[in-house]
Amino acid sequence: MEMKLLRRNEVLDRCAISSTTLHRLIEAGQFPPAVTITSRRVAWVEHEVENWIACRINQARRE
């Protein structure tokens, strides 16, 4: 399985959320944690973000 990291802007685009919403979700423990790349750069594991999106879609379909 190839692992890919996503930058913040890619995460925001894929999830269709704002930076503020991303921050709130992270603080609440409701979003996959970022991986620290350097002291000034973080990224997210693509499949973890995709799983989060799929869960949100499934949840919305059940409501």
Rank of each mutant, 00 (worst) to 15 (best):
G29P: 09
K4I: 06
G29A: 06
I53Q: 08
L5D: 00
Q30H: 06
A16Y: 15
E27F: 04
S18L: 10
R8L: 08
E2C: 04
Q59V: 01
N58D: 15
L12C: 00
R8Y: 01
E46P: 08
E27R: 10
L25E: 09
V35Q: 09
V42L: 13
D13C: 02
T38G: 07
W44H: 04
T20P: 13
C15V: 11
E10W: 05
K4D: 11
I53S: 05
I26W: 09
W52S: 03
M1S: 12
L25G: 01
C55V: 04
E2Q: 05
R41N: 09
M3E: 14
R24A: 09
L5W: 02
E50M: 11
W44T: 00
T38V: 03
A34L: 11
R56A: 04
M3A: 06
I37W: 13
K4F: 09
L25R: 10
I37K: 15
N9E: 13
A28G: 05
K4H: 08
A60F: 09
S39P: 15
I37S: 06
R8C: 00
P32D: 00
R61I: 12
I26V: 12
T21A: 07
L25I: 01
I17D: 00
V49P: 01
R62N: 14
I17K: 06
W52M: 04
T38P: 14
H47A: 13
A54Y: 08
W44L: 03
I26P: 08
R61T: 11
A16V: 06
R61G: 08
I26N: 10
L25F: 04
I57G: 01
V42R: 15
S19M: 10
A16R: 15
L6P: 06
Q30P: 01
R14Q: 12
M3K: 06
E46H: 02
R62D: 14
H47N: 14
T21Q: 15
H47G: 07
Q30G: 02
S18R: 11
R61Y: 13
R62I: 05
Q59N: 09
G29L: 08
E27A: 10
R56W: 12
C15M: 14
E10Q: 13
E50T: 07
L5C: 00
C55E: 15
R41F: 05
I53L: 12
E50Y: 10
V11K: 01
T21V: 08
W44G: 03
D13W: 07
R40M: 06
L5E: 00
L22W: 08
N58I: 05
C15W: 14
L22R: 09
